[in-house]
Design a protein around this nucleic acid. Structure first.
Lengths: 194, 194
DNA sequence: TCATCTCTCTACCAATTGGTAGAGGATCGT
DNA sequence: ACGATCCTCTACCAATTGGTAGAGAGATGA
């Protein structure tokens, strides 16, 4: 892997788990095994680095979701289920991914705006889809936009806050992961069923 | 209000909306209208300040929830509903409150540990209650701990991420707030009904 | 061989960080 | 009038921040 890619990956992990502001270029460089100035050679400033990291994260997310949807059956509950399963795996294995998206999107900045732009079409498609299925009576009636936001909040929240799970006695072993994933699926099914 | 209280309140707002690391003592002092050294007079270090702010936030949350539960009817769906309504108001009016709790609890630190300690009894009570009501057949069966975590994730997520709501075309006016609150209640009802 | 391009380095910078030292103005009970 | 205590101030500090300047090693192509 090139130095550039290693910097991107390391930055994603550090930014996502500890926050953009809390991670210095020096620290990223140290983890990669390089000097800070090498980081600044590849990315002209920290802002640019953050932007690129966000682009990587957003793309990764879109790809995973798209792939899951292409393979999913027709029933909307099954399709929601497919998305949950698809996002769940990278989310818990790499909490930094959703963590970073969440952290940045919460702030008001140019970066947040660009990130939102990159994910907007995904959001629009999801909202339109939910609306259609509600009209067809295959999903519980409600505001499609708010339902989508609630789903996002639930999934992102649970994936980015292992501490909350630990507080209720959950363990992140294989059985725990399976249990969590299935509980999450049942939760969404119950919440969305007509 | 005393200087100390104003520092606490300002710190809660700033920490909660922008993150602990991103907010300097200088900035807190400036907003309060005082010098940084005055902040350090009242709180011997930034760590101590963070701790005290967390204590305030945790206490506020516990008080609000307890009050709502005391006034709520017996049916578990109604009780969940009461908690949602009670937390919803301070959460959207002051996103910093839940935002701070979420941000800190996500990190692994002594502060996170102390915060968890302060909220643990609340969590334990909620989990035990959910378990009992499931046994009584008044709630959908599931892992009470995970269900509690999912509820927390949904509520906190939606309250701390206005950007996600904006992405689906939501507006934070009076009608929007009412709509969101009701959608949230319906979501939980559907997700938890037996 | 020479020049060029890619990549990483050392050395430095101004600004900001959390924190210390200690002076001085109020307000208090005596 | 008095010292004591409470509160905020100015002035400073070492460490860290993001960023600049420019040298030099190593490969590549002519």
């Amino acid at each position: 892997m090139t130095t550039r890619d290693r910097i991107l990956e390391t930055a994603l992990d550090l930014f996502g788990t500890r926050g953009v502001d809390a991670v210095s270029l020096d620290e990223i460089a140290r983890v990669v095994g390089v000097r800070k100035q090498t980081v600044l050679y590849w990315f002209e400033s920290k802002d640019v680095l953050v932007d690129e990291v966000l682009a990587v994260a957003a793309t990764e997310l879109v790809v995973v979701i798209d792939a899951a949807l292409r393979a999913a059956p027709d029933d909307p509950l099954d399709r929601v289920d497919a998305v949950v399963r698809a996002v769940f795996r990278p989310a818990v294995r790499r909490p930094a991914l959703l963590g970073l998206i969440r952290e940045v999107s919460r702030l008001e900045s140019d970066q947040a705006a660009r990130l939102r732009e990159r994910l907007q079409s995904l959001v629009d498609r999801a909202v339109a889809y939910l609306g259609n299925e509600m009209d067809a009576g295959r999903l519980r009636r409600g505001d499609p936009g708010l339902i989508a936001a609630l789903g996002y909040a639930t999934l992102t929240g649970i994936a980015t806050e292992p501490e909350a799970l630990r507080a209720v006695g959950w363990h992140s072993d294989a059985a725990g992961l399976r249990g969590l994933r299935d509980e999450l699926r049942a939760f969404f099914r119950a919440a969305l069923a007509p």
